[in-house]
Simulated assay, not measured.
Amino acid sequence: MQVIQHPAETLRTALVSSRCDLTDRYHKYSREERRLLEECLCLGDGSLFRPITVHSVSDWIHSHPEEPQDFQSFYSNPYPSKPIKGHSTIYLQIIGRWVHTLSVLYVRWLRDYCQAFYYWLVVKLLPPVTVAATGCAFRVNSSSHNLQIHAGERNQLTTPDAFGIMGITMIDLYPKDSWNFVFGKASLTEGN
């Protein structure tokens, strides 16, 4: 796996903003929050963030090689997904029942993070739904005996003002019948 690194100064220059509201917000952060942001800029140099490497043949990237993407190829994409008027909300949808009481707090943290990262969009939590309400096929895995949701289908969860809907679940996913499981699936072009 190739690890692409950019000098910290290049990243700082790329992320400097002239918007007063953003610089004012930065100055209101606590010392710990500023440390987190600064370590994000010094990739691999600090204690919080280190480059991901392949450790064994059981790692995902070893079994499922993917083309590397650096920032320049991402930025120069001629067909980026951009919000359009009337479709500027990201919805977070909890699917299935969550047993752990901290789960709701974690999802709220995720919402707050998404709201900060996608500051030009609105991020909202939808009420939790059952697996059946998604309209996706599901199965019980013959090996693990766990419920699994088919992640390759377009679900029935739509809202008219959505830029996108992210389903969050603690239930296993599978992309097609021949696969045992998958960690997740995302698409900016296949439905919501």
Rank of each mutant, 00 (worst) to 15 (best):
L43S: 06
L43C: 12
G44V: 01
D45Y: 06
G46V: 05
S47V: 05
S47G: 06
L48S: 05
L48M: 11
R50C: 05
P51E: 13
I52D: 08
I52K: 14
V54C: 09
V54E: 12
H55A: 06
H55K: 14
H55L: 09
S56D: 11
S56Y: 02
S58R: 14
S58C: 08
S58T: 13
S58M: 10
D59T: 07
D59I: 05
I61V: 04
I61K: 12
H62N: 03
H62K: 01
H62C: 03
H62T: 09
S63K: 11
S63G: 13
H64N: 08
H64C: 06
H64D: 10
P65V: 08
E66Y: 10
Q69A: 15
D70G: 15
F71W: 13
Q72H: 05
Q72L: 04
Y75P: 01
S76L: 02
S76C: 02
N77L: 02
N77G: 02
P78G: 04
P78A: 07
P78H: 00
Y79I: 03
Y79M: 07
P80W: 06
S81E: 07
S81G: 03
K82W: 08
I84F: 06
G86I: 01
S88D: 15
S88K: 15
Y91E: 02
Y91S: 01
L92H: 02
L92S: 05
L92A: 04
Q93P: 00
I94A: 13
I95A: 05
I95D: 09
I95K: 08
G96M: 04
G96I: 03
R97H: 12
R97L: 13
R97S: 14
W98F: 13
V99H: 14
V99I: 12
V99Q: 15
H100W: 11
H100R: 15
V104L: 12
V104P: 00
L105Q: 12
Y106T: 11
V107M: 14
R108I: 10
R108D: 15
R108V: 07
R108W: 12
W109D: 15
D112Y: 07
Y113M: 15
C114R: 04
Q115K: 06
Q115C: 07
A116Q: 12
A116W: 10
A116N: 14
A116V: 03
Y119R: 06
Y119P: 00
L121Y: 00
L121R: 06
L121E: 02
V122T: 14
V122I: 14
K124V: 02
K124W: 02
L125Q: 10
L125G: 11
L126N: 11
P127E: 10
P127N: 14
P127G: 03
P127V: 01
P128W: 01
P128D: 04
P128R: 01
T130M: 03
T130Y: 09
